[in-house]
Structures are given as structure tokens and as C-alpha cells.
Design a protein around this nucleic acid. Structure first.
Lengths: 223, 223
DNA sequence: GCGTGTGAATTCCTTCACAGCT
DNA sequence: AGCTGTGAAGGAATTCACACGC
């Protein structure tokens, strides 16, 4: 039972608000880098592509930290959102699958810069195991459990083919890691206490296709 | 004014339904591969992780193609969804950015297999231009417009750093491609007639972090 | 005066529950 | 009898609009 050290972590945020808070954080940090000290909901809205009333509503879930007639103190708000999202603690990510995508993710600087440490990269293929990718050496997925333990990973990214995903997913959960981001194009069966998010690029293109196909071919011209 | 060749494309589907239709399609094709001929909403629900009433409601947007007391004819339903999503036409995808992610996407077999043809890969870096990645040769992004035209691309994937994204995005739109999937972690400003979807992996991890941090550390044990 | 904070109104999505067809 | 199709109910998220405090 860890005692709550920072105030106000308890109330659950609406799922949609959580997603947007990450956008506000990104926008805020950009504004801070430009030297901003105060921001209004209107500015944040502009910078993150959300309506200003939505911004205010979302921020109000964290508490009343703005000043009427003035706005929000940028530095403070950034820290407040960081805390609310749980980004004050260290997140250690293991990537399973060292194919094209897994290797790209392992080298992706965007993770490190936002506080996610990629601590392990695993694969099943003997030809890949032992090779260096970025600053990591590829481990054998047969040793998944011990690698997760030694690396103290608390998140896993699955970057592997559909066929392998469920099996590895089960092992990851059994090993005690309950936060999983999957790029595998299959439905993964997990207990409800597990946090699973899915990213499927083919799905994204299909959704684009739907909208593209419905549009009356605006603005362009086949010369 | 293109005459509607296939029946019933006109009514707009709810956005949430479109996203799920891609799941049903995937599930259906898997079931078909296993030799299924009929499926019930219950089976589809199971296979795609959606409630069965939601499945029925979504399918009802496409028309009444099920048989009461029996279910849906799998082959037919698959084709119907394919048509509704606009996947009967050829989609030609150009990937801008041949860094880790762009190269991984270019080689990702999942696109081809779902009807998306990767027809071009572009980069700005002279050291990369001309190299082969998969079955493609990297083009110079300076020639973006002519490459898009020659390759007849009608979708673009942006796999490039935040700084470059807006500029390239503008050029893509000016060149007449209005369906864009962006992996760049920035807000892109686009006219409303453009279809833009965003995938941000750092955001996904941050959302995971939020949920992980709220959970009372279930089931696992730091040995 | 100005921008936040928030109830109320609205829109969008999901689930319920059952009538209707096979 | 069984499963679809769908109005109606319920819930979630967004927008509105204005009172409140600086």
C-alpha cells in the first residue's frame, strides 16, 4: 500500500481527457521552450487542436489551477499534467520483436525524450539474437521472463507477427508486466486488470480509405 | 459527378462504426480462412472484441444483410464491408521519410496484404536517396510533386521528424493528395477537406502510463 | 474587462430489450 | 426456437453560455 505522496491522483479521468492531456503536455512544452510563462485555454486549444472549452474542462479535472482573467502558469501546469499522467516515475520498456518495426521503435528517439527508457529488445530468430540495435543487444525471447526481471521492465511493446502475439502476451502478463502496447494485427485476449493498447497501421489506412472514398475529390486536378 | 456504381455508399457511417468495421473485416477473413460460411453477430463479437449488439448495430448501417435465426453469410458480408470501407479501389501509398520508421513501414507486409500498395519512398537525406529499401528506391523529397504524380499515389504516410512535417504536409496537399497518415509528433494544420489521421507512439505509452500508475499493482510480485 | 470554471444543453455512442422473420 | 434488426433508454463526451474572481 503505497501512501499517496502527491496530492490528487485519485479521481479517474475520462478516457478521452487522458488522451488529450498528452497533447496539452506536448503543446505546453513547446510553448515553454519558446519562453512562454502563461498560457490561456485559447492558446492551448490552438496549439493542440482541441476546442478551448474542452481544454478548460479537461484541465478542471486536475483541479482549479488557472487564474481567472489571466490563464495558467505554464511551468506549473506542465508539471501538474506530468504528474497526473504518471510520468514522474520511470517507465522501462521492453520491446518484443526485432523485425523492421521493433528495430525502428528501439531506435526511436521520441521515447527516450519523453521519459520512456527502452531497456530490452527481444526476438526469437537466432540470426538476430545478439546483434546490436541502437545501444541494445537483442535478447532471446526464450529468456523473456528473466530478461523482463533483470531489466526491471514495467511496460512491454509487442512488435511481432499476429501468430506469435497471443503466446508472448500471455507470458508477459504471467511475468508480471501488465501494461502492453501491441502493434500486432490481432485481437489479444487479456484479463481485465491488464492495460492493453493497440496500434494497427493497416486499420488506420483503412479508415482513411473510407473517408477518402466518400469525398467528392476536392481541390485536386489530374493534370 | 461519378455515378454510384455499387449500391448504398452514400449514407455516412458513424466514425466509431468505421473503426470497428475494419476489425470485423479482419475477423471475418480469419473465419473465412478457417472455412466458416455463416457467422452470427455473437461470433463476430467474440472474434473482434466488441459487444454483439454493437456488431449488429454497426452492420445494420450497411443494410439488412443478415438472416434472422441464422446469421450472416460470411463471404458476402466480407465483400459488403470491403465495399463500404472503399477497399475495392486501389490505394497507392507514398511514404515520406526513410528513417527507421519509414523504412520499417515500407517493408511492412501488412499493407500490401490488405490492399495498400506502397508505391514510393522519399527522403531528404542525400546519403539515403537512391538506396533500395524492400523493392523500392528512395526518391528525393525535392521531387515530391513529380514523384507523387508519376507514382499516382493517392495516400501519403508521413514518417518524418516534427520540424519537417508541416512543410511536407502542405506540399502533399498542394500536389492533390488529401489523405494523410502522420506519425510525426506535431499538430498538423490542414484544410478541412483533407483526411488526416495521426499515430503517435509516445502518446500511446503515456496513456498506458496513466492507467498503469492508477492500478493497485495487481497480480505481480517483486520477487 | 478578461479568461477560468462549471452546470445545463446537446450531440454522439452504446446497451437494452423485444418485435419480427426464417 | 433462434438470431437479426431496431426503436428506446442510458451513458459518455463535447459544446454552450454565463457566473465568478482576478
Amino acid at each position: 500500500m503505497p501512501p499517496p505522496e502527491l496530492a490528487a491522483k485519485v479521481r479517474a479521468l475520462p478516457a478521452a481527457a487522458v488522451a488529450r492531456l498528452t497533447l496539452y503536455l506536448r503543446a505546453l512544452n513547446a510553448l515553454l521552450a519558446e519562453g512562454a510563462e502563461r498560457v490561456s485555454s485559447e492558446e492551448l486549444a490552438e496549439a493542440s487542436g482541441v476546442s478551448s472549452s474542452n481544454v478548460r474542462k479537461d484541465l478542471s479535472y486536475l483541479g482549479s489551477y488557472g487564474t481567472r482573467g489571466v490563464g495558467y502558469e505554464a511551468q506549473f501546469l506542465s508539471r501538474r499534467i506530468t504528474a497526473a499522467l504518471g510520468l514522474t516515475q520511470e517507465w522501462r520498456v521492453a520491446i518484443v520483436g526485432a523485425g523492421n518495426l521493433g528495430r525502428a521503435l528501439a531506435r526511436y528517439a521520441g521515447f527516450e525524450s519523453r521519459g520512456f527508457d527502452v531497456v530490452a529488445l527481444l526476438d526469437q530468430d537466432q540470426l538476430v539474437i545478439g546483434h546490436e540495435v541502437g545501444w541494445l543487444r537483442v535478447s532471446d525471447v526464450a529468456q523473456l521472463e528473466s530478461v523482463l526481471e533483470r531489466s526491471k521492465a514495467n511496460m512491454v511493446v509487442l512488435a511481432l507477427p499476429a501468430e506469435a502475439a497471443q503466446d508472448i502476451c500471455d507470458r508477459v502478463i504471467a511475468a508480471g508486466v501488465h501494461s502492453i502496447l501491441s502493434f500486432a494485427p490481432v485481437l489479444l485476449q487479456v484479463p481485465e486488470y491488464v492495460n492493453l493498447r493497440k496500434v494497427d497501421m493497416a486499420t488506420e489506412l483503412q479508415i482513411l480509405a473510407y473517408h477518402a472514398q466518400r469525398l467528392p475529390e476536392t481541390g485536386s486536378e489530374s493534370a
